[in-house]
Simulated assay, not measured.
Amino acid sequence: MDEGAMMPDVTVTGADGTPVRLRDLPTPTIVYFYPKDDTSGCTREAQDFTALSEDFAAAGAGLMGVSKDSPESHGKFAAKYALGVTLGSDTDGSVCDAFGVWGEKSMYGRTYFGIERATFLFDAAGTLAKTWRKVRVPGHAAAVLEAVKAL
């Protein structure tokens, strides 16, 4: 997905099992993709976004973290770390495909398919304003907040 594209009309499943249409989130909208609940990098990223959640809300921004984990897994993850971000489940991979974040990865010489850690910022009109690919977690949430404030 390239900057200037419109937000895909896709739906994830919330941790409580209800469908959440991404286009219905407050704008500007941040959608961040992460590989797996309760892993070190993904936990740190969710905690960093949680720490700034009041700032995102003050800017009027909607924030959604998405992985292929189940809604039940998201609920346990959020409860374990007292996360203040909304998590969406994409068990069938359709949302990952729409955003182009599912692909081949490698770690320790092993090749496999998984979610690329990526973040997408959509403006009030639903246009992709900024993309972060192959995200490094430290400082990322703060950088996204600055980009929201700059819109």
Rank of each mutant, 00 (worst) to 15 (best):
L83G: 06
T86P: 09
G109Q: 05
P28F: 02
L128E: 11
V12S: 04
V137R: 03
E3M: 12
G103Q: 05
A129P: 06
A58E: 13
L151S: 02
P71I: 14
Q47F: 12
G41Q: 05
G93T: 00
A129G: 05
Y34T: 06
F49S: 10
C96I: 07
A125R: 13
K105R: 15
K134G: 10
T29W: 14
Q47L: 14
T91D: 08
V20P: 04
Y112S: 05
D92C: 01
R110I: 15
M6Q: 15
F120T: 08
F77K: 00
A150C: 01
V10G: 01
A147R: 04
I30Q: 06
T43L: 13
S89P: 10
T18P: 03
K149E: 10
M6N: 15
S53P: 12
K134I: 05
G17A: 07
T18M: 11
A142R: 14
W132Q: 10
P28M: 03
E54Q: 14
D24Q: 04
A5D: 15
M64A: 06
Y34V: 08
D123W: 06
P71N: 08
R23C: 10
R117Q: 00
G139R: 14
K130F: 08
K134L: 09
L145K: 02
D123R: 02
A82E: 14
V148G: 01
H74A: 10
G60C: 00
K76N: 15
P8Q: 01
A5I: 10
L145Y: 05
G84D: 06
F49R: 07
V12H: 05
G65Y: 03
L151P: 02
L128Y: 09
A125H: 13
H140D: 11
T111I: 15
V85H: 10
P138F: 08
Y34K: 03
T111H: 10
G84Y: 07
G14W: 12
